[in-house]
């Protein structure tokens, strides 16, 4: 593929004909998805629909059986240094935060820039503190993750990914493990990222975020993309039965 200056028309993420099996289970069935630069996509669906798996294939935490995935025009490599480089340009935020428990908050944020991008210590620290300030936890810089609340930890996780200057951010159910009163502080960080033009793929159950901050809702069920529409359209007038069924169950309470 072309690796020169990508034209604005090149989609940031391009998933073509992707299939995946877990043993006998066919979890991703011929997925096609294109995400242009700057778009915020929310992946919705019942559990077992494959949305998390799809999200994880984009930075090759899960392998695919067939099809191709391109990131900003470059084919996703299967291994080696090129994969590591490409991964560093795709940020990932996990449901269980996964901060490095034996390192301070600041060390968590500066580790990857120093060891993968080989930035100098001072430069990394400066950038790290800026990012921590941005997500609102700069005053916790020298604490350890266990000393922070869930919401704070998740915000640090976002800062950690941002420290690598990613082109696209993946969120795998970022608020599902949080107490209700902490969900909003994380969502507001995500919303501000979206406003600044970051390309985002978010697997979530937070309908409020989907309606307010996203450009596009992709509804998955049983390993296929069932519906793909703008949020307003999707929530007020879902086209498929499956989607209607799903919305009916969750919007009731």
């Amino acid at each position: 593929m072309v690796t020169g200056e990508p034209s604005p028309a090149t989609p940031m993420i391009s998933v073509k004909g992707v299939n995946k099996h877990f043993g006998a289970l066919h979890v991703l069935k011929d997925i096609n998805l294109e995400v242009p630069r700057g778009q915020v996509v929310v992946l919705l669906g019942p559990s077992g629909s494959g949305k998390s798996t799809l999200c994880r294939t984009i930075n090759r935490l899960e392998t695919i059986d067939s099809g191709s995935i391109h990131i900003d025009g470059d084919l996703l490599p299967e291994e080696g240094r090129k994969l590591a480089t490409l991964r560093s340009e795709v940020g990932m935020v996990f449901q269980s935060f996964n901060l490095f428990a034996h390192k301070t908050i600041l060390e968590n944020v500066t580790l990857a820039p120093m060891k993968v991008r080989r930035k100098g210590k001072d430069e990394a620290r400066k950038k790290g503190l800026e990012l921590l300030e941005r997500v609102g936890v700069a005053n916790q810089a020298d604490k350890y993750p266990a000393q922070l609340s869930g919401g704070q930890q998740q915000r640090v996780a976002i800062a950690r990914s941002l420290a690598m200057g990613p082109k696209v951010m993946l969120f795998d159910e970022p608020t599902s493990a949080l107490d209700p009163e902490m969900v909003n502080e994380v969502l507001s960080v995500m919303t501000s990222l979206a406003t600044e033009g970051m390309t985002m793929i978010v697997v979530t159950h937070e309908m409020g975020f989907a309606r307010r901050a996203s450009n596009r809702v992709v509804f998955m069920a049983d390993g296929t993309i069932v519906e793909d529409a703008e949020p307003d359209e999707f929530f007020t007038a879902p086209k498929s039965n499956r989607a209607r069924d799903f919305l009916g169950k969750i919007l009731d309470h």
Binding site: T63, E78, G80, L83
Partner: peptide, 8 residues
């Protein structure tokens, strides 16, 4: 660690 690709 990652599932090995062809080179690996």
């Amino acid at each position: 660690y990652d599932a090995p690709g062809p080179r690996a």
